[in-house]
Nucleic acid binder design. Structure first.
Lengths: 332, 332
DNA sequence: GCTTTTTTTGAAATCGATTGCAAAGACTGC
DNA sequence: GCAGTCTTTGCAATCGATTTCAAAAAAAGC
């Protein structure tokens, strides 16, 4: 009569190796407290029997999970704030950077994360820290979070008064670079395209408008989608007013929407109108013509977000970081 | 002298409510064993004190984590990480379907998942089940996994002899649909473009070739990327051989690569050459001209993958599923 | 009013690891 | 040969919940 308790537990391995449970635990952690000989024997036995430590038990005892929550809005959820390939690019890079540090990634939708409030996510989701993609103006909430001692970092618009670690590209600079380029192309009727109330995009707008000097037409769109942007542009082009000869869109996806509308109305890009996006998402290169855009280095962003978060988890506060951007001139 | 043990534990709430720990636990689970009055009081106190159950402790005791691992890296296709928009689409839909069922998502790279082998992931990563995106010919490994009783489902190419639950679109049908369309357009020189050794793509190829009847030129590319596909096509067009007048690419990203090469060599699409992709990823619509492609319904796929996995976790075996596909005719 | 049943509650065991502390064994030095 | 170190090992407590089982309280039955 064998009692088959399913997967092996640490006690089983201990018995098989003729040692006690603590010794097995130490051997698996490569602790110097165990003699090399014993260690090797235990490791062998563990491997042979396919033993792995139970993560749930380990998490409980160590009060640490080596898991980080990444909170992101999914495109098809009702309020699609961040429906962009850019965010997935960023996610992939974050996941990579975390993997290097042996951390697991818990992917949370904005809604599920917010269920019990961010402040309870550590206990509630069993994670050691949080990476928030996109802040959408919840500055105050984040301030409180930081004060409560929750380890988190945010990807979003830089702001001088942030008491937490926020990482973002230099949006005003990006806007200025685009203005400069349009000026050097001798463009006259500049337009900015994007939704209102989105902090990062408003910073891009402001940087652009200030560097441009004279009036910038603002074309508002309801959200960040291709379709919304295309529709808004179509409507604008059909309004009878003189068409713009330089369009700066708040993201690549919106730029592509605008391009679609321009093409449809027979406005030739880049001859009759220059178009510039933001993000340098992969699709910008694939697009025909390839999109001129402001680059955000997602690889670097992912690496720094993770590095800072780890630092914060270890107790060292981390200051906001502003990432440089540059203009990638392509076919539009 | 207050002893500040950080976040509240269940015992604290019990004390505050003047009941015992088990009662609090039951109240939080809305168990019928607790009187409504007591339940309400406990819930109030818990909320007021911002109490949430500790997930690690809960996981350990319940021997269940309500967390599903999604493994998303393809082993021998380095370019194909999260970078293909299709996978990211699928991931988002899976995440969404899991959220509806109150399950969390642990995002695992192929490598980290494979660290200790899939068979140990449940204990090792602390998940209840696994969703594998892309199977890339590890049929035997999966067979063993299934035999070992690990709950998992796979997104990939259908095969008749699968002893595990595999879900995929009807790739041969997709290929046939494309062949039909090319035939109705009176095309003569058909080409298939894609890497070898990728099961799903080979099925598309086969369906296409069989339905086409006469010889199909095969253009091999090293991976699924835009660049690889563009390069391969450029090289082919420069070879001096007659250019194809109908190209079926194994994915949208590759189709866009091919389109880029065709455009560059002055071959007008769709007049001189028809192009068809596979996936119907969002970028297919955004592309100019909009891509004709075979649709894979990621929303449905995500929903079914999750539904089946839940079923398997509950002990009911689930058979493979073949999803229907259809051709979406657009501008190419 | 007193048993019987039903509804609520709590004591204690348990999930599977990690770790502080004490003890046993192996080495040193003199 | 024996006190004093240093290295290894194991006992027992602990992490924070859930669940079984028995007991107490309340309601019902007659």
């Amino acid at each position: 009569m064998k009692k088959n308790t399913g997967p092996k537990k640490m006690d089983d391995i201990a018995r098989l190796a003729g040692v006690s449970k603590p010794t097995v635990s130490r051997a698996l952690q490569d602790s110097p407290l165990v003699s090399d000989e014993t260690k090797q024997r235990i490791l062998d036995i563990a491997k042979r029997h396919g033993y792995v430590v139970n993560r749930s038990a380990q998490n409980l005892r160590r009060r640490r999970t080596d898991t980080i929550a990444v909170v992101i809005d999914f495109p098809h959820l009702p309020e699609n704030r961040l429906s962009d390939p850019f965010h997935f690019e960023l996610l992939a890079n974050i996941a990579n950077a975390l993997a290097v540090r042996q951390q697991d990634v818990l992917l949370c939708s904005e809604r599920s994360a917010h269920q019990g409030g961010f402040e309870h996510m550590l206990a509630n989701k069993g994670v050691d820290g949080i990476i928030l993609l996109g802040q959408a103006g919840r500055h105050e909430e984040f301030r409180a979070l930081a004060k409560a001692g929750v380890p988190f970092v945010v990807w979003g618009a830089h702001r001088a008064d942030a008491s937490y670690c926020i990482l973002g590209s230099d949006n005003p600079l990006g806007g200025r670079l685009v203005a400069q380029r349009f000026r050097s192309l001798k463009r006259k009727r500049a337009m900015f395209l994007g939704p209102r109330g989105h902090l990062e995009i408003e910073q891009r707008h402001r940087g652009f408008a200030e560097a441009w000097g004279t009036a910038v037409e603002e074309l508002e769109v309801p959200d960040l989608s291709f379709a919304a942007s295309r529709n808004a542009m179509l409507k604008r082009l059909d309004s009878g007013k003189a068409a713009p000869d330089a369009v700066f869109a708040g993201s690549d996806t919106m730029a592509m929407g605008a391009l679609s509308a321009l093409r449809e109305r027979g406005i030739v890009v880049p001859e009759a109108c220059s178009v510039c996006g933001y993000d340098d998402s992969p699709s910008a290169v694939h697009h025909a013509p390839a999109l001129t855009t402001v680059r955000q280095d997602t690889r670097l962003a992912g690496a720094i977000l993770v590095e800072r978060l780890m630092q914060i988890i270890q107790g060292t506060p981390a200051a906001p970081v502003l990432l440089p951007t540059d203009l990638v001139v392509r076919g539009t």
